[in-house]
Design a protein around this nucleic acid. Structure first.
Lengths: 373, 373
DNA sequence: GAAAGCTCTCGAATCGTTTCGATCGAATCG
DNA sequence: CGATTCGATCGAAACGATTCGAGAGCTTTC
């Protein structure tokens, strides 16, 4: 093929109008209502009639009910919206969201539902402008709260994953807020680090609030931010805080290896940190990607992991180019979370009670924690 | 938040029905048709009336026309489908598709269109079951051809990106087949490698056909496969073939760093390849991810790039953890391709002529090619 | 043999919006 | 001042499916 076959599609005037159920009914010599019943297999229809309708449909080239008409009549469009935190690109650079969305798509397509991907843009016009039956919100940015309100006004069933900020909005009636107990899982990891004997520990966090600018923080600064905001990052920080108080560290702008590398370089630079302590012997990162970045920084600095530096992550995802199972982390049941989110909405739409399992993170011991040198 | 607040949404019986335009019209004391005109801003409506209608809408809590009803009436649902090759996860692990989809989403959301993500599953039920106005097909798997036929039957405008296989299906009337000239770009890279003096060159290809099992191939095998199939991989192989005939190499199962690493290990194992030649001095990889994997394999084997081994890629994407601009490759205008695909469909839907720019790949010289040792 | 109970089919209403043609009043023009 | 035009508004007709209640033709039962 060459660059761009500017092939004018001349489908305009010659386009045959899509055959309707009325045409099928006429062809089969039955009423439209009967044709509908026969085709959908809902009502009591004689086998002969059913066959006749099917044959007629075949003859006139009927390919099933027009989804637009059907969704108008039934009030259901068989589409579920997934509101991302930001652009598609940034959302899907993160394996966590990627796995969740994949699981959602999988479950939805099993039952013939479509997935409408909604970049969490500033503009909520899309939310009201396209038909959907329910929505899943990923993450817990302030934007998600806005989106949730808009969607709520349209009285759409809502489910969030990791929507900690939304869970605290009293007036939002949400079907479910899914997610593991980030705080407990973080505490568990922190205890593991403490048990190995570390005391000079630094933390690499996800963005703590709206402000996405990266940089170092002291324990006091972290405490102030944690008090003011509710987010996944502050939840996890609180968990670590149960074990290590007054931790300083670095806030990353995003959950990427590159950000982790930057964080690692800053933390391992050798000079004392802003609180006056020496180089940390352990780093608690709030995501696996960040942790891998920190490990890369350690290697750059000639430090061995875990002999010279212990590192833990969070999420339990497979990081490209990093041996699976090596990193000490906790594994979130991301696929299960995605499936459950989809399932919860499908049940809600079907009018069935929504039964939600409990989700918990599982410790992955790995090989990146050892006693301090 | 704890694991799973099983918060029963009791919105069922108490749910207020969505206010309709009729309610607004009644409140404002005008006809429904006038209310529609006033609200949409289409017809000639007196300023006073418009204001009255807006005020009435505000009072009754009208939040714009029901998208289902509107799309039923107009026959447009303001949704465009994007058919992926496989699961969401595998499609979006590839930065190439990720950037394209991101660009599509961006353009669509600018004009208030939604993006329906359709995993290219075996089942085409979804394609006919949910309302969309047009579709974009990514990649050129055999599955895409099937999907294209289904969508064509629904007389939906179609655009492909890198749909070389589809471009050769005579009976498919497609608005546009977008993509750079992969063959020419590959030839350009191959000439660059040849100019550096290489003759023992191996190729790492993307899956050549339906068969996705990885493994080594000889020149003859490659020729046979190229003759039998049309795909991005065979196109690029042909381009390289213009410069180096009878190239052997390795077919990767997927465009990932891990697959590139595997390929590199196999090719650099030191023993002669199946055609009896020694270790290659240059590797032409069909994607940047594969190329980075090969470079990692070279490092593992203690080879320096480019001093001991030259490596080129394809795509021009930023690979996490690899310095931007270092890899010798060609850059595809991926964002532009995505934007153009969306734009082409929007124009087609608007009945405007579709003007497509020419897309060409741009050589990124990089620093991974040098004369053979 | 009539009443009751089936199974199958049908007609009609309905969903909420957009759009087309008609109408009505006021302003413009000759 | 009457004829014409134009802008603003309205009523009604779609769009295509689903669904409900009614009824037609059976068979079963007393």
């Amino acid at each position: 093929m060459t660059s761009s076959d500017n092939e004018q599609s001349l489908a305009g005037p010659g386009a045959t109008p899509r055959p309707t159920l009325a045409a099928v009914a006429a062809e089969a010599g039955v009423a439209v209502s009967t044709a509908s019943l026969a085709f959908s297999g809902k009502g009591p229809v004689a086998e002969a009639t059913r066959a006749a309708v099917r044959a007629a449909a075949e003859r006139v080239g009927y390919r099933g009910p027009d989804p637009r008409a059907a969704s108008f009549r039934t009030g259901r469009s068989r589409v579920i919206g997934v509101v991302l935190e930001g652009a598609v690109q940034s959302a899907f650079r993160d394996p966590v969201q990627l796995i969740e969305v994949d699981a959602i798509a999988e479950r939805l397509s099993e039952v013939g539902y479509g997935m409408l991907l909604l970049p969490g843009a500033e503009d909520d016009a899309l939310l009201g402008g396209t038909a959907m039956d329910a929505a899943i919100l990923l993450g817990c940015s302030p934007r998600a709260v806005t989106a949730a309100r808009s969607l709520q006004q349209l009285s759409l069933p809502l489910v969030t994953i990791d929507g900690v900020a939304l869970a605290h909005e009293e007036d939002l009636a949400v079907v479910a807020n899914l997610g593991v107990d980030s705080r407990a899982a973080s505490a568990e990891l922190a205890r593991l680090v403490a048990a190995a004997g570390h005391s000079r520990v630094a933390m690499v966090t996800l963005p703590l609030g709206e402000d996405r600018s990266a940089g170092a923080f002291t324990g006091a600064e972290l405490a102030a931010m944690s008090a003011a905001t509710i987010s996944i990052a502050t939840e996890r920080a609180r968990g670590v805080g149960e074990v290590f108080s007054d931790l300083s560290g670095w806030m990353a702008a995003d959950s990427t290896i590159a950000d982790g590398l930057r964080a690692g370089r800053a933390l391992l630079a050798g000079r004392a940190d802003r609180a006056g302590r020496g180089r940390p012997t352990a780093v608690i990162a709030q995501s696996d990607l960040l942790a891998v970045g920190v490990i890369r920084a350690a290697e750059e600095a000639g430090l061995r992991v875990p002999e010279d530096l212990s590192v833990v992550g969070f999420d339990g995802v497979v990081v490209d180019g990093f041996p699976e199972g090596r990193l000490t982390t906790v594994r979130q049941p991301l696929r299960a979370l995605g499936l459950a989110a989809a399932q919860a909405l499908l049940a809600e739409l079907a009018g069935e009670p929504v039964a939600l399992p409990r989700f918990s993170a599982e410790l992955v011991p790995g090989h990146t924690v050892a006693p301090p040198p």
